[in-house]
Amino acid sequence: MIRLSSLLWLALAGALALGLFRVKLEAQHLEAELMAMEQAIVEHQEAIQILEAEFSYLTRPERIARLAEKYLDLAPLEAGNLASFTDLPWRGDDSPAPATPSDTPAGVAKAFLASAEAGR
């Protein structure tokens, strides 16, 4: 009888020891993972810091202007290029909108809308 209970306790203690060992091992793994993660965070923050500086460097207005001139078919925005929605002709009915000279912003916008309509 005594032997049986002793064995039982022994088995229990063994199981507990094993369980504890596994939990500790897992905690150790997690801790290592956490540290690696933290290290990675700092590394990424460092990379972000450097990339932001590089972004700022690469978007120097002088450089953008130079590149735009070289590769794009765009001109600097001028006062006449801006128009508001109220400048656009009303196209609610079929009657032709009042003629707008095509050299005004509204005229250009209208011509654009008309060509978009035709292309559809």
Binding site: Q39, I41, V42, Q49, I50, E52, A53, F55, S56, T59
Partner: peptide, 22 residues
Amino acid sequence: PSLVLGRADIVDRNGMVLATTL
């Protein structure tokens, strides 16, 4: 954890970096 570089950035009104610590 965070990166400690010891000096804050200076940016323009749109957030473009004018001075940074690397």
